[in-house]
């Protein structure tokens, strides 16, 4: 019962293809030049062309949230965007959170609260929480539930995901 439909705003893009076409993607602050078919999704470009497999593919049709990444700071389902549409825009994935070998407070909170079981939905959950906390550093439980309501977890880690998000908010507010 996903309630949060997140899709990138459609922007006018030049006609390209058929066949592979060069594009530039800015992922976690680094620019990558790659050659993809116009039909390649952002998700597959990240996973297959850039080897960033932290972003998971679970439904490939915008219904589960496992591939949530941030596009210009907003959470989107990477399977619902073409790589071409994201050219020149800022893309943030789970691989970009830890800095200098130190986990991001959201990641640390997910481990401490055991907010994961199989871990397959975890990168998407973490990115949804990141988007929430970037915008609202002091969320309520209801805010958290809404923020991750478009991220399915089949193992049922939800109660702990809520706890982890609130704990991460606390950690971030206290600057640790």
């Amino acid at each position: 019962m996903a309630t949060k439909a997140v899709r990138p705003k459609k922007r006018k893009i030049a006609v390209r293809g058929p066949g592979k076409t060069p594009i530039k993607l800015i992922v976690n602050g680094e620019t990558h030049e790659l050659l993809v078919e116009p039909r390649r999704t952002l998700l597959d470009a990240l996973r297959k062309d850039l080897g960033l497999t932290g972003t998971k593919r679970a439904c490939d049709e915008g219904t589960c949230g496992a591939c949530t990444v941030l596009l210009d700071g907003k959470p989107i389902y990477a399977c619902m965007a073409l790589a071409l549409e994201c050219e020149g825009r800022s893309i943030e994935t789970v691989e970009g959170l830890a800095r200098n070998g130190k986990l991001h407070p959201i990641q640390a909170a997910f481990i401490e609260e055991d907010a994961l079981q199989c871990g397959f939905c975890t990168p998407g959950q973490i990115m949804s929480v990141k988007a929430l906390l970037d915008e609202n550093p002091n969320p309520t439980l209801e805010d958290v539930k809404r923020a991750v309501s478009g991220n399915l977890c089949r193992c049922g880690a939800y109660p702990k995901i809520f706890k982890a998000a609130l704990r991460a908010a606390e950690l971030l507010r206290s600057g640790s």
Partner: peptide, 17 residues
């Protein structure tokens, strides 16, 4: 806490997929 938590939260854990 899970000993493999860091791999799972950073996207480093390699699943068959």
């Amino acid at each position: 806490p899970r000993t493999d938590g860091p791999e799972r939260v950073t996207g480093k854990a390699v699943y068959t997929f």
